[in-house]
Amino acid sequence: MNSQESEIFQNEEISSGDLKGVVEKRLEYSSMPEFLNTIEKPAFHFARVSTSSIDDAHDLVQETMYKLVEKYTDKSPEDWKPLFYRILNHKIIDHYRRKTIRERIFRQTNFDNSATEDYWQSELYSGVADPNEGPSVLLERQERINCLTKSTAKLPIRQRQAFMLRCWEGLSTQETAHAMGCSQGSVKTHLSRAKTALEAMLGKYYD
């Protein structure tokens, strides 16, 4: 194992920790509406990058919210996030299956891949992040984010799931394993590979 990989795994150990402790520290919701408020935007961007379609992303997020509220409202709030992403992941995989079948039947159909384009392409930016950020800084940031989403979308599905759940959504290894339906070892392997691939693609932006 090289120094880079060992560093990745060291970070894993620190961040996985005791699940309850981690959850108690960052739980920002106690009711289902609060939870949906906090999860809606990250979930939308998660689905957008995974499906490469804004409309499909909206559909998947809505279906996931509906199912979570219908089936799991009675579960404890710390279980909601992993459960939400577990449902969303299953729906994304179903989406890929349906898309593959559609593509086999209608080979000439063009699907909407607008989400892989710049997210702000058709909209004037009304930045609210930091008033001190000048236009050049904002432009650089937009370019960086677009590159990040495009590069993430290029990853194989399991690597992308592991990377987005761990690094975007901040789930622990244990929660990510639950959401992906695999072992913690597999999560670490997928994450390590995803990071290696992304570091090669995003090196100049995130060094």
Partner: peptide
């Protein structure tokens, strides 16, 4: 390869 700057990544995601 270089390491991804986690802080910058989190800032960008918050911005997104």
């Amino acid at each position: 390869t270089k390491q991804i700057d986690q802080k910058k990544l989190k800032d960008d995601l918050a911005f997104l």
